[in-house]
Amino acid sequence: MSEEKTHIVPYKTQVIVLFVLLILTGITVAVTRLEFGALNTLIAMLVAGIKATIVLAWYMHLKYEKRLLPMLVAGVVILFLLVLFVTFFDYSYR
């Protein structure tokens, strides 16, 4: 039942992805030493989000899948963020 040929990711792409991830790790550690106040956490989460997206897209092959899976993953992330948001309806206003 193989409707489509599986995509083979070249080794080179995978090494490049690793380097990007390592650079981003370096950035997030370096940013900790700077003083941005509350922005620090935001930057850290933003960098982590970018790293996660890269892992999902390349290492977890979402880039090469049909549309269904990326949509489901996005849906789950949105669901989680909504739960977090609704929970803070309570904690932000106590």
């Binding site: 997030t28 989460m45 982590a48 999902l56």
Partner: peptide, 26 residues
């Protein structure tokens, strides 16, 4: 093999968030 790989990347994904939230709080 692919599914085990997916599982492993998940473990990595979680760590990507754990790391800044615990070690790099500013």
């Amino acid at each position: 093999l692919e599914n085990t790989g997916l599982y492993w990347h998940l473990v990595d994904l979680i760590w990507i968030f754990l790391f800044p939230l615990f070690y790099l709080i500013h």
